[in-house]
Design a protein around this nucleic acid. Sequence first.
DNA 1: CAGTAGC
Length: 602
Amino acid sequence: MSQSRYVPPHRGNTSFARPRGRGNGGFGGRWFPDQVSPSFRNDNFDISEKFDELEVIGEGENSGVINFDAYESVPVEVSGNNVPPPVNNSFGETELEEGLKRNIERCKYVKPTPIQRHAIPIASAGRDLMACAQTGSGKTAAFCFPIISGILSLKARSSSGLYSLPRGDGGGVAYPTALILAPTRELSSQIHDEAKKFAFQTGLKVVVCYGGAPAGHQLRNLERGVDILVATPGRLVDFIERERVSLSKIQYLALDEADRMLDMGFERQIRKIVQQMNMPPPGSRQTLLFSATFPTDIQKLAADFLTDYIFLSVGRVGSSTELIQQKVELVEDTDKRNYLMNLLHSQRGPGVNGKKPLTLVFVETKRGADNLHFWLSRNGFAATAIHGDKVQMERERALRSFKSGDTPVLVATDVASRGLDIPHVAHVINFDLPRDIDDYVHRIGRTGRAGKSGLATAFFSHQNIPIAKALVALLQEAKQEVPTWLRDYAQSSSQSDHSHRSHRYGGGKYGGRDFRNFTEPKADNNSYFGTNGNGYHAMEPYNTVTSHGIPSSFTGSSDNFSNAAFGGSYHYAGANTESYGGDHKVEGGALGYASVVPSGWD
DNA sequence: CAGTAGC
């Protein structure tokens, strides 16, 4: 086995060997003892100094030690054909390239999070993947590691003459090998920072492109060569149309916040980039989709981009949230400001290390953000605001000022709701609740990251009745207290989950279910479909899928299913992870069809 | 309807 070959990097002295890791990954430049994870309090003090010593690029804002205990008992669902087994307890077991492993070690990530344990072997095996995992549980590394490792091994082979991987061709056109797309500029920037750390001294070049910043600098970076391009859609399309970037050599495509990227407002751009800009088709590239939420209707859209993919869900979709204490208060619009003021006053005491606790306040509109920011400032609160009508410099300044604690209150629109890893956010306040419950999940996920606890307070007004039902379901799922009045609203409202998407959760609310398992017609003699109850069906996780051939009823029925594979599936509770494979039984038969064999990319 | 996203 490859793990016996793994040789820890030479500088791995034992004082490093303790669980620590990433939120969304990062180097611990600053680190504050974690009030809520006392189990690690005594052995973390040396993170930053060890780190700085290594000169590994800059300051990882998203530093942090993972409280692994918080993740030990999460449910996992995996389905698809021939699912590669997870690794257990260390990155040493993975088949990642040595250069990357060295950086992982430098990052002090000694132990993969659950999403990493499962996703890395799947992605390393070259499989397409649709993955759901809680906010703050380490998704960025989960897709970055296999991509970086994969490119490194391609290059290794290339030097022996097997592959030719063009980078800038001298004609001013950049040919990235991997493309990572994200829905906001700040998130792209964050992913870029992370990926650079992971690719440190490997020779790989990571470049980021997004709007609102001068194009010249980004273009110069592209000209110097790019292996991994991180981008937001608009600027990328611009560069492609100007023929400064070509996607014709793409072998890895990752969509972070994938459901967002395929939702209205982004879907067309993504389809254009992926399907109409010369990118190799599914089967000729590897596609990785990650998010904390993955509504059924979006899963169906996403299937267009994938081939014989594996669906992976770690923890309830839209949940991590047992770590986040959620409160819902009945506050009418006219009372919100006073209520907020009281809340902020009540938490004015010194926070971690004498810093004020950071509070992130979400509002519905850009104008609302400005108004509330102004009002807070006038009332003596050091606040700032971020939204899409601000110029990029202001956006970045606001974020920086919030992270540093200079302005411990940040008023934000949904521009800040997804992916941003801001350490030490103690409290997320939904001043205005979003219309979509998934947005709520992402917003509160700005706290309670990397296994730490957090607090989320929502102001529920009359206008929010449409999401009452979904909110109650979510609170129950996360084992939170549900106010009686809210339960009443939920029962009285005829609204189902959403105004126009009531079917989105298909067969299982928040279940992180693979839609292929409950929307497909049952295949005879394969009773495995539709057996997903609440229990954990103990299953043999791998080598269960051997059959081929797809029922004719599947084949031409829908574009959405053209690439889908229907295969084995397993669930288990995290309690079983340590003895993985020991106590699982085969769940049932499997069916699938021969996957498209990758046939090169040009 | 809001929000994100290029000049």
